[in-house]
Design a binder for these strands. Sequence first.
DNA 1: ATAGGGTTAG
Length: 488
Amino acid sequence: MQSLPMPRRYLISSLLQPKPPLKLIKSLSHLKQIHAQLLTNDRLKSPPILAQLIQRFSSPLAPTHAHLILTHFHPPNLYLFNVLIRCTKPRDSIHLFAHWVSKSSLSFDDSTYVFVLGACARSCTAVSVLFEGKQVHARVIKHGFLSDVMVGTTAVHFYASNRDVGSARRLFDEMAVRSSATWNAMIKGYCSQKLKVGEYARDAFALFKEMLVSDVSGVTPTDTTMVSVLSAASQLGVLDTGTCVHGYIEKAIYTPELDVFIGTGLVDMYAKCGCLDSAMYVFKRMKERNVLTWTAMVTGLAVHGKGKQALEILDAMEAHCVKPNSVTFTSLFSACCHAGLVEEGLCLFHSMEREFGIEPLIQHYGCVVDLLGRAGHLKEAYSFVKDMKVEPDAVLWRSLLNACKVHGDVVMGEKVGKILLQLQQQTELSVVESSDVSEDYVALSNVYAYAERWEDVGMVRDMMKIKGIQTKPGCSSVQSFRGRLLDV
DNA sequence: ATAGGGTTAG
């Protein structure tokens, strides 16, 4: 067994201090050793000290260790159980909770439900835990914890992050007492539906207005509210509303310096609403900027076709010691794409992995394919796809198909179009919320139309009729050109 | 002695 990095006495005494130093425990073996020491010392075998240990541990605790710790207490200790639920990975906490529900030797409290529902909200990325969360919600009702504001708020957050906006709102409306955080959870829920961007942005505004006129004491918009509302304005492309929100922030939420979160939200809002000058002005005024702030600025430059300026940001970031992340590169590629900087984009793709140590994800490959395709390098784009380390997705094929159409390559267009339709048939049954189903059929039909192969056009259109696929009308989210014109 | 909410993306 390896020796402890610190003498035992020093370590335990520092744990007993009112404010133990942060990041005291670095590795799992270190944690185990301390745990062993505590177990041999009866005086120190207390839940608060173990809780400190667990919370000072830098990474989520493995479920087996969580279990081990819990079984040392007879009867089981609720406080420690809650801390463990908080300090394991979301999915592990859900399992841990389910296990102890079946043992029925603990009667849970409000904190337990806050942590479990919070875990259900956080683990929504890959596979939905809507079913598990609903069961927790049922228990909450059964045991009378729904009247607790924090439990209710977390439940709203849970439904919204699992894409069930309707249930989130129903719960929100039923709550007798709501805090600012409750309103924030619902407003945020409307703004962060990644699969349906902008679809609930108007609901977010409506709820924000209700919040403003709410006469419940203590319920006022906070910085969190404002970040969400800015995001809603940005999604809708409503510059004048966004500007009003900015005014409200300056007036109501006074801070001597622009907060990094709100500042980033403002940069994003102005850039997406077509007002790049204002975005730059806010950006320059900010004292503290993080990766997200810089990335928002890159995105702003990218959508305005300022490719060279966007690339310069990468150097500026280095000068400010801010490391770009995966998303920053997506924005940088997008900037290259919009400005037709093919060489620069390819060069960036290689340096991303070599210099910055960021592994390319599907969206990065997608950007490069888009970049090559738009510039007319269709063969290169196709062979690039064939050499990829990950499976190409529909978005990637779609951009290649579009490039084929633009550059009149019917042969490759037909090939890619068929791959797309095949891919769609595979996902049709499993993914309910697939993006515009009609797009791929229309795109393939356009490829045939370009080649004047009318029989094939008819075939695709017939397929659409049989499958009952309807085309969607196009729309623009930018409210008016007024702001843009004033800028020029 | 334990708490809920935040910005970036093809």
